[in-house]
Amino acid sequence: MKRTTQALGALGVVLFSASMGLADPVDDTLIINEETEIVTRTAAPAHISDALDEVMSGWLFRGAETRAMQADDFDNPGMIFVEQAEEKWASADGSEGKSCADCHGAPEEMAGVRPVYPKWNEAAGEVRTLEMQINDCRTTRMGADKWKYTGGDMVNMTALLASVSRGMPVDVAIDGPAQSTWEQGKELYYTRTGQLELSCANCHEDNYGRMIRADHLSQGQINGFPTYRLKNTKLNAVHSRFKGCIRDTRAETYDAGSPEFVALELYVASRGNGLGVEGPSVRN
């Protein structure tokens, strides 16, 4: 009798979740350290309003415990890496004997930088990610070696730069000289890659809110990067996440820092224009 009840109960759950269709993200507000309110849900920017009405942070698709971890810096494991980056920020490196702080002052002076990257760089004639800009400072201004694109030092530094912009709205420019890169990123977003022939849009535009096996699909926004993932207990860079998602379509991925991923990052970032910067966020 007991076994039958359990079996029926399990079936009930399956039937219920399957018939729910597009499950709603949670109705919750993200306030960090009881002071910084983050916009996790807002009207879609005009350039994607044909595809989505609203844009939503991945935070709204995570469980209560994961959401709570991000709301308090003492509980957010990503903040340990921010502290490590604060040390690097103030340490001289390279042949010029300079630190980041020597040119830029306190990390807080960089508030407002994260939300506008990737960004067109006029002198270089290219769209640059924050990582590219950090490495440019290291090589041309400090005379130091480049950091590995998704390595520990780099991802920690991007976490520090995100943390001082938390709550500011993502606002990447997609027009003017950045437009062709943006178009390339859009093309990649809708290309069905790999043996499973899946595009980013298949999962994150057409099916967000639904379960794909054990995962609750979000819109795949990048306002929360870098993300501390409970799954691998470290900070994860945007391009590492792109790699993982493309790998999961049984495809040959692009490399971190490749022109393709730079373009894709600009496009995906633009889909989240208006969402608050959250990095380092907590995800599963």
């Binding site: 290309t191 043996q195 022939e197 790699k243 495809a251």
Partner: peptide, 14 residues
């Protein structure tokens, strides 16, 4: 007929 087919879930080319 695939675009960038991979070697299973390795992320490498088929």
């Amino acid at each position: 007929g695939f675009i960038r087919p991979g070697n299973a879930y390795t992320g490498k080319a088929a």
